[in-house]
């Protein structure tokens, strides 16, 4: 082994030792507690998710979208091409039999989120309880995550904003998407604005990790599908009534 190889080995050994030290520290922090309000961080004991029944979702109804806009202070500035959209109402038609599917599509809060993988600054991250968020303090607005997202869930803020809400800071030059109403979850509301607003009872919020939660029981009895399941992202937003 020549001198350069020896040096490389030594360097890699030291580097990997340092890396282990770094990764252990945040791991301990994440396990520290599970009550957001008690001064401790959220834990992976919960996995928050949504269940959407496409058979109950009505065409033309945009109650969830309006509720989301109001809750998070989303407003139109320069028209639909650049306006932020955290929820999209989508309808799909089966050409063979004419059956039309209606559903809201938002950030699917993937367990293996592509947006988190591609983010060069670590701004796009997954919280311990499964919510995928953008830390706008570190977001540089490169929009890699928007390209990586298979659901077109993220929006870029193009314009200077005013009158943001205290619980939903938003600003020019950053990427944003559905937060699963993280401010409501952290204060213990146990629901989201879209779920509260749905007049047809097509949406359900709950803890996917808790076998006794209503959402888990519903999934257990009727099953659920993921959009683009072949990507194997283990989404937190599940659907019922779409073709498997």
């Amino acid at each position: 082994m020549n001198k350069i190889d020896q040096y490389r080995r030594k360097f890699l050994g030291a580097a990997s030792a340092a890396f282990v030290g770094i990764t252990i520290a945040p791991g301990i922090l994440l396990q520290a507690g599970n009550a957001a309000t008690a001064g401790q961080g959220v834990s992976d004991a919960q996995r928050w998710g949504l269940l959407i029944d496409t058979n109950r979702c009505e065409p033309g109804c945009d109650a969830c979208v309006q509720a989301c806009n109001k809750e998070n202070g989303l407003r139109s500035i320069h028209g639909p091409k650049t306006d932020a959209q955290w929820i999209r109402k989508v309808s799909l038609k089966n050409r063979k039999n004419g059956h039309v599917l209606n559903m809201p599509v938002m950030c699917q809060h993937c367990a293996k989120a592509p947006c988190v993988d591609v983010c060069p600054t670590g701004a796009s991250f997954k919280r311990a309880d499964g919510i995928v968020l953008v830390d706008k303090h570190t977001c540089i607005g490169c929009r890699y995550c928007m390209m990586a997202c298979p659901y077109k869930a993220r929006s870029f803020v193009h314009e200077k904003l005013t009158d943001q809400l205290p619980h939903a800071p938003r600003g020019k030059g950053t990427v944003e998407s559905c937060t699963l109403c993280v401010h409501k979850i952290d204060r213990g509301d146990n629901t989201t604005a879209c779920v509260q607003a749905c007049p047809h009872g097509a949406m359900m919020f709950g803890d996917l990790n808790d076998p006794d939660s209503a959402i888990s029981k519903q999934i257990k009895s009727l099953g659920s599908q993921q959009l683009r399941k072949k990507l194997d992202l283990d989404t937190g937003v599940r659907y019922q009534g779409i073709p498997v």
């Binding site: 922090l29 994440l30 957001a36 309000t37 001064g39 401790q40 961080g41 959220v42 991250f125 919280r127 311990a128 309880d129 968020l133 830390d135 303090h137 993280v182 952290d186 204060r187």
Partner: peptide, 11 residues
Amino acid sequence: RDKTVQQGIRG
């Protein structure tokens, strides 16, 4: 700020 955004520690 970092504790709130990343770990959900509020209040």
